[in-house]
Design a protein around this nucleic acid. Sequence first.
RNA 1: GGGCGGAUAGCUCAGUUGGGAGAGCAUCGGCCUUACAAGCCGAGGGUCACAGGUUCAAGCCCUGUUCCGCCUACCA
Length: 890
Amino acid sequence: MTPHLLDKGYEPREVEKRWYAYWEEEKLFAGKEKSDRKSFSIVIPPPNVTGVLHMGHALNNVLQDILCRYRRTRGDNVLWMPGTDHAGIATQNVVEKHLASEGKDRHQLGREQFIETVWQWREKYGGAIINQLKRLGASCDWDRERFTMDEGLSRAVRKVFVDLYDQGLIYQGNYIINWCVRCHTALADLEVEHEELDGHLYYILYPFPDGHGGITVATTRPETMLGDTAVAIHPDDERYGDLTAHTVILPLMQKEIPIIQDAYVDASFGTGGLKVTPAHDPNDFEIGRRHDLPVVKVIGDDGFMTAEAGRFTGLERFECRKAVVEALSASGLLQKIENHPHGVGHCYRCGTVVEPNLSKQWFVKAKPLADKAADAVRKGRTKIVPETWENTYFDWLDNIRDWCISRQIWWGHQIPAWTCGECEQITVATATPTVCPECGSRHLVQETDVLDTWFSSALWPFSTMGWPDDTELLKTFYPTSVLITAFDILFFWVARMMMMGIHFMGEAPFEDVYIHAIVRDEEGKKMSKSKGNVIDPLLVMDRYGTDAFRFTLAAFAAQGRDVKMSERRVEGYRHFINKLWNAARFSLMNLGETAPAVPDAPAEGFSLPDRWILSRLRRVMQTEQEALDAYRFNDAASALYQFIWHEFCDWYLEAVKPTLYGEKGEAEKAAALYVLWRTLKDALILLHPFIPFVTEEIWHKLPGTEGSIMTARFPADDPTQPTLRQDPDAEAHMALVMDVITGVRNIRGEMNIAPSVALAATIQSPDDKTRQLLTAHREIIVNLARLSQFEITLPGEHPASAAAAVIEGATIFVSLEGIIDFGKEIERLEKEIGKLQKELKGISKKLSNEDFLDKAPEAVIQKAKDRHESLAEKSQKLQTNLDRIRSLAS
RNA sequence: GGGCGGAUAGCUCAGUUGGGAGAGCAUCGGCCUUACAAGCCGAGGGUCACAGGUUCAAGCCCUGUUCCGCCUACCA
């Protein structure tokens, strides 16, 4: 083969496509239903079928993929369960918009046809996000892909609904719910996004019937007054102590309504008078119930005023607000308007201002389920990482309110409840009933509402595995090992899966829940235009390659902090990919086509750099293992980065080049080739979870590998390879050698001496061991420091015209005969001494503190003493040299 | 109203039981040293937001303050 086994630069695009197809073809993502191996399972947070991959998805799925791929190398039977979510409201909106562009609406189609249209739409466009996940490299078990609306999951939904209904945990009732007038459906409390807006507080006088005085109420939503059925005051409010009137006249409606007393009223707010609108405010609704008030619904489900709104009937709600204010103003009853910032609820799907509205809906009685869900975490059966999220989780569950699960849309799981046309009996059943069990009538009408999408998502960890059937898959993979998600769906999804999982499976669905950061700008919400940091992950992958993108995300994924994505950062990690590529290219040039044999007596036969890099390799393995086991993705990523670039490339490869070129003999070369091969091979396995494509590509070019890198064992677990161990001696010795080289390079750099100029250096050390070590490895030093001469001696006469550097136990002199710039060297030494002195001062102070000597642990004191001694020695030596240079200069 | 998080180098951020302030990028200087100029070698740069406290010792623990972000809440 030519030496150019790899091209000079890494071209990700073609490589990524090729290997992903290969992995799928070889079924390497498949989890085994039955296996002796340890199970590791993750269910994907199902993206919406309408979704397009954004940064949040990218981060979320890359982290999952890293864990899955890592666990495979550790030998686990891994199942990553993929799928999508039918996203009721969102999807219906998308399809309706599409229909609108053709001049149609869903009512023209009718329910059945509309649903058919949505399925067709999904068929056509719904796969987009799946392909985008594949683009990311996601190693999901695609053959098991599920959809919340598919047959099996629908069956699970029905069973859960029926069971909960039978257990009294689902009920139907008339309550104030959040109503989106645009989506024309009820929303759960969670689905309302509150936004602080600059509103107004309107003070309105409700006159007494006798025309003398009245009660002033304050409201932010004056249009609701049309539906007022009382005015409430606090029973102890002294201002109203001598009230004789029992009613007031509701302005604009000329209706007499009662004055009631209720402790709910906050006497300190406004005038202490509260208008009561039972049909349009949850608190007013409760007050209404207590006082048996009539309920008058003045705002219709379409957002227009109802027939109950008198002369305002037919006005759009905000138009009505204006009209009401004007009318009040004209009648002189509007006493004042104050600016009043307050939170206004918006529909999380379309952004429309939500209307609290009285409506008959289905609810889940959440408390009993929530208690168990909280308990599972309190008892440690499920661990939330980072732990700080546990409080948020508890807070929500402990104060949970019933969950409104019915939606007045068409796309979703239709509620399995039937009302008898004759006796009005409600039948809830998994199988569609044909006759009313009460009266035998065949006139049954199914509830038209569908269920909240999150109702079906809540079942995801077990419904995807075949529940309610007792499947092998469930036995093997439930509960799942970890759920990886962002905190924005902690309540929507995680808490509800916990509730349903415990209730129906008897066991919490996850061992761990890892909450990762959020890429906040991806929705453009908090983004400032000037920053312009909305980034399309697909574009990033196009531009820099998927591996670079993935590595960036992993490096960013520090616990407890938001991710700010920047293309420049991705660019930096593309350089890393390229670095790895080139290191592999270099290695392959030297390795040829066969895997090197393990040298006979490795411990003896290996050179210092060989022993050193193997020790470092063992260490990075350990670091990765610990980091990933604790979900510290960034720690793992940066350890690998550091290892590859700065240890393997910068030091190891440079140090062994002469050996590889045969300058040290065949035995040494053979040993080095083995170590080079082994290190690269193992490093690829370690890197693979993060950067699967480039590692697979190199793996296949590397001799002595078989099949996909996906089937390779984590090196520390691999019984077919000689065991690696840490080698502290090699690390210490190499550190000395590196110090010497860095010392010379420092002088070279500071003195602006070109690398092409070979230098003569002398190193003086009183320590036999040090001199011996340096002698043994002098060629590495000569080579990497670019020396023409290198003497190792006992301390003695300082060479003339030399710059000096001091390291632990030795002084390096670099001869600058003829090229020395005394001024520069004096400056350099002064600077260095200055730094040392500053640090010395701090330590001296500490050491002269009796309290410190008295109370600090012995080890800490000793460390300080050692450090002091070493710094003092260093400083003193440099000072000697400085004095000498000064005398030479003058 | 309640709660959480953040403030560390020019930028983006690490810093896990309190004991010598780190990385990447950017900047500056020197290099085409035959894997990589998407590179190599070297350098500069920080009162760890502010004020107190605990401690022999604080980026880290405690109290308060100021900014920023988020979550949550039925005060009209």
